[in-house]
Design a protein around this nucleic acid. Structure first.
Lengths: 209, 209
DNA sequence: CGCGCTATTGTCCGATCGGCCAATAGACCC
DNA sequence: GGGTCTATTGGCCGATCGGACAATAGCGCG
C-alpha cells in the first residue's frame, strides 16, 4: 500500500517517559518510523551521523548541551538536516533563536497528535511550520524593538543586583554607558525600572530560570 | 498470576502527546491500569467522582485551573485521595505548595520509567515520595526564610515596576510599610536590590512567567 | 556615500531606593 | 501566659536611579 518510503525520525528529549510515549505514538503512525532516540545533544548528533534519518524531533531544554546548541552543531555538519523543535516554551526569544539556528519548525508540547504528525510531514517536505499559539506570541514580541547583544549582557548583570557603576566596571565601560544600556532596556522592554525589566526578561525568554 | 488488584490510575495532563504516550507506557505495566485521562482540572475532578480511581497522576502547569488548585479541590472533596504530582518544575515553592495541598508525592518529568512506576506504587501505599533531585532543590530553598503572603503580594507589584509609594497606595498601607516589605524580601531572597529580588522570585518559583 | 542603528561618554537633577534607628498590635505556637 | 513571627508606621540620610540634553565613532544596508 505505501508507495512512499516511511519517514525515518530521530527522537531527542531528556524525558524518558515522554520519549517512550512519543515513540509509541509515532510508530503507530503509518509513514513514520522512529529509528532511534537520544537523551542529550551529543548522542543525538552521533546518531544522526550513523543513521542519517530524515528528520529530528528535538526538545529545547536538555541537560548539558541544550536544544539550540545541538541544532547549531548539527546544522554546521549537515546544513540540510531537517529539525522540528518540540518544546514547552512559547518564549519568543526561544522561537527566534531556534529558527535562526536553522529549525525547520517549532511546535509546543501541547499540540494535538494530528498536528504534530502534520508538522513532521511538512518539515520533511522542506516547509517552515510554526504552531499557531507560538506564532501569536512571536508577533507580540516583535512589536517592540529587538534587544541587542550588549543589552542582553547588561540585563544579565542587572538581574544579579549589580548597580550601573558595577556593570561599568565589569564590562570595562563607563558607568554612564551602562546607564545608557539600562535605559535602552527599559524602553525596549517597556519597563518602568530595572525590576520590571528583569521580569519582562523572564517573560520574553531573554532570561532563564 | 496477579493476586493483587490492579492500581486504577487517572492521568491528568494538558499535553495530549505526553498523555497518550504515558498511558501507553503505564498500561504495559502489570499492576497498573489507566482508567481515564483528563486535560484540565475540572474534568479531572469530575472523573474522580464517577470512577473513584486509586491514584491520580497530575501535572502542575495546566490551562485554566492549575495543578495546585485542582489538588486542593480534589482533596477538599476526597480528603484521602492519593495524588502523585508529575511535573517539569523543580521550583521549591511549587513542591512546597503541592505537598501542603496534600500531594502524596512529587516527581519531575525526567524520571525514568521504573522510578515513576515505583513512585506510583508507593503513593498508593500511602507513602510520601519525593524525587531526589527535587528533594535537593527543596533543601537548598529551606535555608533562607520563607516569604510571607504579604511579601509575595508586594513582590508581584515590584515585578510590575511599581515604586514603594505606588505599592503603599495599591495595598492601602503607608509607603514606609511597603518599604519594610521590600526590605524583608531583599533580606530573605538575599538580593541586593529589587531587580535581583524579582530574579530570585522567578528562580524560586515564587513568580511565574 | 549617506542613513540608521549600536556602542560609547559626558553633565545636571529631582525622584527613588535601601539601610539605620525604634515602636505597637495581632496571630499562632508551646 | 510568654515567646515568636508578621504587619504596621515613623524619621533621617547617603547612594542610586532614571530622564533630559548633547556628542562621537563604527558597522551594515541600499
Amino acid at each position: 500500500m505505501p508507495n512512499v518510503p516511511k519517514i525515518r525520525l530521530l527522537l531527542v528529549d531528556d524525558h524518558p517517559v515522554l520519549r517512550a510515549g512519543l515513540a509509541n505514538v509515532l510508530n503507530y503512525e503509518p509513514g513514520i518510523t522512529v529509528v532511534a532516540e537520544a537523551d542529550d545533544g551529543a548522542s543525538a548528533i552521533a546518531l544522526w551521523r550513523t543513521l542519517r534519518p530524515d528528520v529530528m524531533l528535538l526538545d529545547l531544554s536538555m541537560a548539558g548541551m541544550d536544544g539550540i546548541e545541538t541544532l547549531e552543531r548539527l546544522r554546521a555538519e549537515f546544513p540540510d538536516a531537517r529539525v522540528l523543535m518540540l518544546t514547552s516554551s512559547e518564549a519568543p526569544e526561544d522561537v527566534r533563536h531556534a529558527l535562526k539556528a536553522g529549525a525547520g519548525g517549532y511546535v509546543t508540547k501541547n499540540v494535538r497528535r494530528a498536528e504534530l504528525v502534520a508538522a513532521i510531514r511538512e518539515v520533511c517536505a522542506g516547509a517552515r511550520v510554526i504552531g499557531e499559539s507560538v506564532a501569536r506570541q512571536l508577533a507580540a514580541g516583535e512589536e517592540s524593538g529587538a534587544v541587542s547583544r550588549r543589552e542582553l549582557e547588561v540585563l544579565g548583570l542587572v538581574r544579579q543586583g549589580f548597580t550601573n557603576a558595577d556593570i561599568g566596571r565589569l564590562l570595562g565601560i563607563s558607568e554612564r554607558t551602562a546607564k545608557a544600556h539600562v535605559g535602552a532596556l527599559l524602553c525596549k522592554l517597556q519597563a518602568a525600572d530595572r525590576a520590571e525589566a528583569v521580569a519582562r526578561g523572564f517573560e520574553r525568554g531573554l532570561l532563564k530560570v
